[in-house]
């Protein structure tokens, strides 16, 4: 007989065997098939050594082998499906956890980019803002250059303070005025030509 002797002693008889035979065929394991085989074998043995019993026994063994193969294959397939299901579950959970950013990426067009809001060096000003700042910087710079030249002119005596429109006022006020008038005009000239 093909039943494992260890099982025989461990599980004894009765309840477990009934259990295996009473199971739904879709929940049978190979262990159950061995249990059934044990029960059937014992009953066949009780029938004695009638050659018809021996003949029947071969067929029963064959049927049990077929059942074993089917159950074995079925449980393998079930195990594979279970693993695949678990993998897919994990994958779904992972995707859900990374959900929001992943969705954001999907929504982006080919010419879009993602800005890391925690990056202190992230881009945050527009080109127009930069353009305005640069324009102002360059305007102030050109005005400064004009004023510097004026100042140089006064320092070197090229421009006499009384050339200013103020005429015969106190020198310092005249200087300021002349400076303003000149720089305004110069600035206009530069700006016009820019």
């Amino acid at each position: 007989m093909e039943e494992p002797p260890v099982r025989e002693e461990e599980e004894g008889d009765g309840e477990m065997d009934e259990g295996a035979l009473g199971k739904s065929p879709f929940q049978l394991t190979t262990e159950d098939v061995y249990d059934i085989s044990y029960v059937v074998g014992r009953e066949l043995m009780a029938l004695g050594s009638d050659p018809r019993v021996t003949q029947l026994q071969f067929k029963i063994v064959r049927v049990l082998e077929m059942l074993e193969a089917l159950v074995d294959k079925g449980s393998l397939a079930a195990e594979e499906l279970r693993m695949e299901r678990d993998n897919l579950r994990q994958e779904v959970e992972g995707l859900r956890r990374r959900g929001p950013p992943a969705q954001g990426e999907v929504n982006l067009g080919p010419d879009k980019m993602v800005v890391d809001l925690t990056d202190p060096n992230r881009p945050r000003f527009t080109l127009q803002e930069l353009r305005d700042v640069l324009q102002e910087r360059n305007k102030l710079k050109s005005q400064l250059i004009v004023v510097q030249e004026e100042l140089q002119g006064y320092k070197s005596g090229l421009i006499a303070p009384r050339e200013g429109p103020g005429g015969r006022r106190r020198n310092d006020t005249v200087v300021t005025r002349a400076c303003n008038a000149n720089s305004d005009k110069e600035e206009k000239t530069i700006m016009k030509k820019l």
Partner: peptide, 12 residues
């Protein structure tokens, strides 16, 4: 009245 410090301005 304004005294120019140059004759021409070229922008490069």
């Amino acid at each position: 009245m304004a005294k120019k410090t140059y004759d021409l301005l070229f922008k490069l």
